[in-house]
Amino acid sequence: DERQGFASAYDEYQKEGKCSNAWIAKSTLGFKGKDIKVSDSATKLLAFIDSLKGRWVVQKYIENPMLVDGRKFDIRTWHLVTAHDPQALQVYTFDEGVLRVSSKPYKNSDFDDDFMHITNNAIQQDHPDYGKNEQDNLIDFAQFDHVLKLHHQRKKGKGGELGKEDEKDNGPMTVRGNVLPRINEIVMETLRCIKDFLLPQPCGAYQMLGYDFVITDKGDLQLLEVNLTPGTSTTLVGKMVADMNEIAVDAAFPDP
């Protein structure tokens, strides 16, 4: 059973002893930050999984996230998949995304503290410092470039990763130069994985997807999950829906 699979993977990490061995378990039916548990105790996680109705996922918790101003964030991007040709999926990425920042400084401990570890807006908005550092705890891609620059400077200053002689300093990562291209690779990979379930599609079918990522302090992008009914931000929703309609709907009804 998959509980056994988790227990063995947990034990492997425990033996390595490299990190504090936190994992995140969630219901596949969950939304708005509900039915999620982070813990470094296998017993607690298994009890949580047993309490869930329906299916669940358990993943290694990313313990070394890149931080902004000491706080954890995840990256939300939006993707459109269309099937004007029922035998092929066309994949699009919206060129703006958001970082969802937590309200409380990050520590690689206190895993029960959702304000520190779970960046969902529905969780964070109950914290007294919500909206204090950035409006709605959101950061746009232009500011993300600034975050990446600061991160790079900090690493360089510390003589950490970039201080090693064998590592060339290629300058800071950028959203459009590094992050989005990697995100697009991951998106294509996930869709290729399930292509046999997706094809053929009814002609004209389309779907918006919301992808969540964490970027580690080493700059590696890690996929967290894919959302079928993604929320958007109030500033982006207007353009996003108009642009989606242009590609997914208007294209199916050309001007006479």
Partner: peptide, 13 residues
């Protein structure tokens, strides 16, 4: 259009 925020990134068939 060129202004469309959704940029084509790939095809799966």
């Amino acid at each position: 259009s060129l202004n469309n925020g959704f940029k084509h990134v790939g095809k799966i068939e």
